[in-house]
Design a protein around this nucleic acid. Structure first.
Lengths: 194, 194, 194, 194
DNA sequence: CATGAATGAGGCTTCATTCAT
DNA sequence: TATGAATGAAGCCTCATTCAT
């Protein structure tokens, strides 16, 4: 996760991985047929960990509040999780920044499934609770959140992702106003008529 | 543009570029000190071309309509431009998918400046025209559009970018319903009270 | 036989053999001390099979005819056998095309012994029957036949072995005219005076 | 020529070649796209040298004698040439012992062309001179000689090629009786009626 | 007797960059 | 200004063999 997270698929070095892991180069190929299979495994593993941890955290968040408040809490947790887990964050970057389609399609589909299996039911639940307007477009909302997640995860650590709010370099605590601003901006998309 | 657009910075090969351009490998280094300087130049050039062409096209779009109608026209133009210009699209992908921060910061800032110098004044103009609600958050709107542009540019051509609306593989004409849906979804963010 | 026959000794892979055989890599070394011993066993086995089958077939061929007619029948059988037994044919190629002397000497001597133990007595028999001229040089005849056998076995399946008669790609039936032509050409070497 | 001649295509090492040539590994690829292209070049070069030298020598051989005497002289020259040129001999072995069809077809066709462009016209010439029987089959004769050449070139230096006459280890001078015996054995194939 | 993970040397090839011409 | 051969490090991957289980 460290090597691939820092350098991505094509620039990540199996030699380096073997050296830092203290095993022989050839040993890597006992478990994976080639570099791509290895990378895919690492990405799957990271996606799974991220999802499991986030589900655990979300279960602890107060469900008896307005949707935008709840979303704010979730996104702050997300922000803190990513700050505390540089390995998972690195792999998230590696999958989001992969250019090669044949590599990308292998790793992105898995990640997207994990995300959507959380996002879709959650949005429906909130709509049923009446906290999301009945005529809101859940697909557009899901797309927005699906884009917001890597944005919040990476913008504080990678240059050029957020030239508007200036997330780059901010701690999770310092990110909170921006998160609040973004959710407030999106609020009309889902907010029920008063 | 072809080589870097297809393979990105680190995987793009100067050997290949020289070979396909029909010039000597050494000649590249007459004009650029190293690979990064070359890549930066290519990205700048692409960003400039994209911006100029889009400004030209936007000037031809009817300004006497509602903001969301106008935005729809612009985004359709953007979609058609990207379909017609695979080289520029490739470089767009290469800059958006670059993982290495020291490379990324060089190319993204330029691109973002180009984008924002168009987006910011435009949004202000539409707000002054009263077509964007006075209390709408122009920053969040700008961030949304800044994310929407690469999304629409790349999702039809790269796997795993849009698992919700299924833009992958669609022609510009087939993308139009999705563009309309997205803008309709975003509409409450800026739409003036009726 | 499959792996060594297709790729020869040095390029043949014990890993592949174990994988395709469905046994563990280590198990190979329970029965053979090293790769060469294994290869030698496979070649011996193939030589033995080839010899036994050809002796069986030769026993069924009419012995009451002229030597060249008989030889034609034998060679056609040989041609058909090789077509029907790609594994044995492959090993034949592997032993004939082995460059490394230390490997070659191990496998060729066995094969040659098998061939000569059939060829020598047979030629003597035919000479005693008076169908081979008394002053014919049986050694040269044996050498000729010893060269003819791999030639007929492999030329239809390997490039560049027969640039004159064009055996490459021919079915056994299509090889028959060439076989007849070759034996007719050799005929003066052994034919008794009329 | 040394490395490929000793170990053949697949076992020959580019690392070794570069090291013994005193150049960098990468430099090999300035002139050849891959190993096969390199090997093909080496084989072509060797074939050309062999042909040119043999044509030079054949021009010095007395043409006013019987065909079998002339052939004996040529084959003795061939035997001496191969003894004096271990590099060319090695490459000859490498092309004759190559198992991989895709490699083999590349190098054998060239070699065969060189051989046949000498053999065919020569045989015709001798037939016109009346030294080869009018009804002799020149194709079979050519095939015989085409097989005799690598046999004489390699049998003295490689195990298991000649289990009958025992050429292995013989000097050119010691090979002469065998060469004479072989040609005497083949003589009836072409000798004119007395 | 069977297993299969571990090894580490070696395989071919690509790369950005230099520099003498 | 243009060239392109030379470099040598680094890339991924395969290999036969060992050995503790």
């Amino acid at each position: 996760m460290k090597e691939f997270g820092e350098h991505g698929y094509s620039t990540g070095s199996l030699n380096t991985i073997a050296r830092e892991a203290g095993i022989a180069k050839g040993s890597l190929f006992q478990y994976f047929n080639d570099k791509l299979e290895f990378f895919a495994f690492v990405c799957d593993e990271a996606s799974r960990r991220i999802r499991e941890e986030m589900e655990r955290r979300m279960a602890a968040i107060d469900f008896d509040q307005q949707f935008d408040e709840w979303l704010f809490d979730v996104m702050c947790d997300w922000s803190e999780y990513m700050e505390a887990h540089p390995l998972e964050r690195g792999v998230t970057a590696a999958t989001n920044f992969e250019l090669d389609n044949s590599v990308r399609s292998v790793v992105r589909d898995t990640a997207n499934q994990h995300y959507l299996q959380v996002i879709h039911p959650t949005l429906q639940l909130w709509q049923e609770k009446g906290q999301i307007r009945a005529d809101a477009d859940l697909e557009v909302l899901a797309t927005t959140i699906l884009a917001l997640l890597p944005f919040l995860a990476l913008a504080p650590y990678y240059d050029g992702l957020d030239p508007i709010h200036g997330l780059r370099g901010r701690t999770p605590a310092q990110q909170r106003p921006v998160i609040r601003q973004l959710i407030a901006g999106y609020r009309p998309m889902f907010a029920p008529e008063k």
